[in-house]
Structures are given as structure tokens and as C-alpha cells.
Design a protein around this nucleic acid. Structure first.
Lengths: 208, 208
DNA sequence: TAGATTGTTAATCGATTAACAATC
DNA sequence: TAGATTGTTAATCGATTAACAATC
């Protein structure tokens, strides 16, 4: 247990390191240095060493980092050794696409339930899932001990569903709805709104 | 023209302010304060005032900000008064979902072309689009003057396609591939990888 | 061994916050 | 007018970088 908590900005970079290391591992590379890893992810070598040093000593002077070992440690640090169960709320176009996405399972996450409020959708099967009634969300989440959710409902409903998720014990929400959410401090929200990134880039484009 | 450039961290918050303001406007609210806006987006009032002050004086003492006016100014600052043309590369499951997404057009962006390298897909129609051959990407982008792209190809192909986009004059890339990209400094990349956000949140979850 | 690279310290740099005069 | 809230300054806080002894 740490006496001082690790800054969230450092935590936010660890998944990026992990992704790059796993990519290298998949290509048969077994060793890297802070310099090389930094070049790949666009972060300085000093910062990578500083970040990792928050959690231990994972490298060797002269040779750098053994990739399988560093991956193992990062996976532990990020708590993605096992799979976290996730509930998905909102079975529109986007919810369907997310359900079919195959990229969660080998990175620590597994969607185990999906919900909607549309009677026409409730009870229908999507892939291996049966769409559940969002009015049963609370009981289902509590009894299953689900701690994470993905939110794919319209912006106008997002806060209300969020309140329900929080009340049901959810501690992390991946929010695809284009709206800022208000949650208590023990709950974390990550935002996925492609337009935010596009607008941020548009600022730097000169003329049409 | 600014003598000193605005920090990117400030630019990154402007789209969040804009989104919240447009949401308020859509609900008939015409006035807000830095305090109220800050509460909504989870940012301190002082920071919002400081951020906005980089670009001018948009509020009134005692009454705060007139929302339609502030929206107008933010839209100008972010250069999203007109629509930016965007090319989408990679017509898999995700590319299809993005193509059908209706949320870009009224926030400053419009997908105008889509590409794939699969002969079975090239020439086929998806929604109002015809899938083009990615080998014709360079000519198409240059002749159309397209400056932004969305990347939905497999991670293993992402860097190669990125190089081609950059060479074709693209200056902003929204990257959905789960891999870090290397680009020259005049090109910006925004990353959309839901797993990065999930892993970041998993760090704070105690036990399974 | 010589070269390479770590982990860490101190210095630098930049971002956030607090406070308040100005003024609507 | 009195209360509210801005824009801005100075102080604080935190993050990044540079440098290097230790050592593989």
C-alpha cells in the first residue's frame, strides 16, 4: 500500500505503455528501453522511467526492460489480470457495434449484460446477449456485483441512467453519450466523444 | 494573431465547454456563470474564466455569460462554423458504425469519402457512400483538399495508412486503431481506444 | 572492460487556484 | 444601491526535464 497516492496523470499513461509493449511482444520483441518505448508512444524516456519508478524497479541498467516481465507487472498494477464484468446500457446503433467489438476480452474486460428501455428491444437477442429491461438494472447489477458500465444512451437520458448506475454500485463509467456527467468522487468517468477530439484538432487547421 | 500560442491543454477544454453550452441552449437556458458551467463540466470556475480570457472578454460582471454569444465565439475559435470534410479509412464493423453515426454534422464535421483495401468492399455502397479503393487515397485527398481523417483499420496497418494520409496533406487524424502513431509535428492525432479508459478506471477498483 | 541504460534527485517549467478590484 | 460575477494578478501547486551516479 502506498503512503502517497500515484497521480492520476501517471495512471493514465500506463495503459498506453501496456498497449505498446503488448504490440511489441506480439511482434516477437522481448526487450526495450525507455528511449525506444518513448519514441513509440510519443513520451520522453525520462518520463517513462519516472512513471514506472512509482511502482517499483522493472528494468536493468545497460539493457533496459524485459517486455514480458514489464507487461506482467503493468497488468497487475492496472488490475486487468482477470476480466472485469461490464454492463452496457443503451442498445442503439452504437450499443450494437460495441457489443460486437472483439477488442475488450483480451485486454481485461467482458460485457456480460446489456439493457434498453425500448419494449421492442427488451427480450430480443443480440449476438449472445439478451437485452434486459433497464428498469431491472439496479437489482441485476447489485446481484452480479458489476462495477463497470458503458453508457450508450442519448445525452438527454445519460445523467439519469448514471445516477442509477452509481446507486447500483458501479464505480467506473465509460460514457459514449456526448454530455458531461456528475458523479460522486468515488466514481470515475471516462469520456468517448469523437467530436471533442475533432474540434480540438480543428482549432489548429488554418483555413477551410 | 496571438503573440504567444494558447496552451493545448486549454484548447482541449474548449470543446467540452461548447458541448455543455449547446446542451443548455437546447434546453432554453440563455445565461450562465463560470460557476454554473464549471459545476456541469467538473472544472473550477476560476479555470473556466482563465481559459476564456485567452481569447477575449465574453462575460459581464454581475450577470455572467450570454450563452448564444459564447457559443458563437467558441464555434469561431474552434473553427467549426463550417463543416470540415473528413475521410474515413477502414470499412469494417467499426467503420460502418461511424459512417452511420449522425452526431458529426451539426458539430462541424462531415464524412465525405470512405476507403478500404478489400476488393469485396471496394465499389459497394454503404448508406450514401461508395467505398473507394485505398490505393487511390492520395489522389482523392489531395484533389478534394481533405484535411482530416478517421482511421478504423487494424492496428497492424495503422501506421502505414497514417503515413499515406500525412503524405496526402491530412493534418488531423482521429485514430480508432489501438496503437500509437508516429506523425510529423504539423499533424495532430487524437486517440479513441475505449480500453485505455477502462484500464485507467480499473486501476482504482480494489478487488474483483 | 566499455558502453548502455536504469532509477532518482534537483531544477525547471507550466498549470491551477485564490483573491480581489472593477463593474454590470 | 447592493449583490453578483467577471477578468486578471500573484501565489501555489504539480508535472516534466535534465543530469548523473550506480550498475548491468
Amino acid at each position: 500500500m502506498n503512503s502517497v497516492s500515484v497521480p492520476d496523470i501517471i495512471v493514465s499513461r500506463l495503459p498506453v505503455y501496456l498497449r505498446a509493449l503488448q504490440y511489441m511482444a506480439a511482434n516477437g520483441i522481448t526487450t526495450t528501453s525507455s528511449q525506444e518505448l518513448g519514441d513509440k508512444v510519443g513520451i520522453s524516456a525520462a518520463q517513462i522511467r519516472k512513471d514506472l519508478s512509482q511502482f517499483g524497479e522493472f528494468g536493468k541498467q545497460g539493457t533496459g526492460y524485459h517486455i514480458p516481465f514489464l507487461i506482467e507487472r503493468l497488468v497487475q498494477i492496472l488490475r486487468v489480470e482477470q476480466k472485469w464484468d461490464i454492463a452496457l446500457v443503451g442498445m442503439g446503433e452504437l450499443g450494437h457495434a460495441i457489443l460486437r467489438y472483439q477488442g475488450f476480452i483480451n485486454r481485461g474486460f467482458r460485457i456480460v449484460a446489456c439493457f434498453d428501455n425500448d419494449p421492442a428491444k427488451i427480450g430480443s437477442r443480440v449476438d449472445v446477449y439478451t437485452v434486459e429491461d433497464v428498469s431491472t438494472l439496479g437489482d441485476r447489477l447489485k446481484s452480479s456485483g458489476i462495477k463497470m458500465a458503458m453508457l450508450c444512451v442519448p445525452a438527454s437520458m445519460a445523467q439519469k441512467v448514471t445516477d442509477k448506475l452509481v446507486e447500483s454500485g458501479v464505480r467506473g463509467i465509460l460514457n459514449y453519450a456526448p454530455v458531461s456527467l456528475t458523479v460522486p468522487s468515488h466514481v470515475r468517468v471516462q469520456y468517448i466523444d469523437p467530436v471533442i477530439g475533432l474540434q480540438r484538432m480543428a482549432y489548429y487547421l488554418n483555413e477551410k
